[in-house]
Amino acid sequence: MDSPTALGPQSVSPARRLRLPRLTNGNATLNIGAAIVLGSVLLALLAPWLAPYDPLRTDTSALGLGIFSPGHILGTDEVGRDILSRLLHGTRLALLVAVVPTLFALLVGGCLGLLAGYVGGWVDSVLMRVFDVMFSFPGILFALGIGVALGPGLTSMIIAMVVVTVPEFGRIVRGAVLGLKQEQYVEAARALGFSHSRVAFRHVTPNLLGSTIVFATLQTGRNVILSSSLAFLGLGAQPPTPDWGQMLSGGRSLLLTAPHVATIPGLAIVVLAVGFNLLGDGVRDRLDPRARRTRP
């Protein structure tokens, strides 16, 4: 009876698929975001071959050279290191500390959220109160505290970021699970006597993926900023590791005499963060059925 509406879009899509890859189908936001993120990944992978210098090589006869200096397209920093080389190598760390904490937080927060939402009752109450407590601290302050307690370093920064973002994933997943629990197919599965784990993982979880993927992508963008802030404050990878936040911090001393030393890594942070945000928005547009319906 409802076959015309159900068949309608499906009959169109094969034709569209021929024109463009499905994922980037006519969605400018998604295209730009994906291009930035993929481009960053490529730069990160190819950094050793693209970078003109060793990112750690100092040269005190060439301190704070300006943009387009001979041999140094983006100039040199406060110790005479090539900024372009450091920027390229820094892409690896920037992506790492954006993506890895997201994955861990997704895993931990997702499981806790699923548990809270599916089981409900006192488990839900306890977990949510714990999350409330964690939410009550400003994110960066909380991360700083954890980072200081664990001692500065890449691992402790990632742990700090995971701890700070776990409650957010937990909340999102729990909310979605509460909705899904009311769905007829879930009730049907339970009525059929399937085990709780089977219902939770086989019936509920797949339907959570859409919203969590969108949130995870947006969170990755926020992580770019958070990790840079923590590195700026000296909590992340230790010098002389090329790290954007740290480059920004190091360039501060030259702010009046050679502003590009701090500005260039700052721009890189902005571009990558915007890239992940656009990607997140784009993916949401693709996955959100209401958004899809409004498009012709």
Partner: peptide, 27 residues
């Protein structure tokens, strides 16, 4: 110590040249 990290970067490079790796813990 406003330039401590920069100075340590130079020293790390100098020592690396003779085969000494300097692990610096900043605080």
């Amino acid at each position: 110590f406003t330039q401590a990290t920069e100075i340590m970067s130079l020293i790390q490079q100098d020592l690396k040249a003779i085969g000494v790796e300097l692990d610096v813990q900043y605080m």
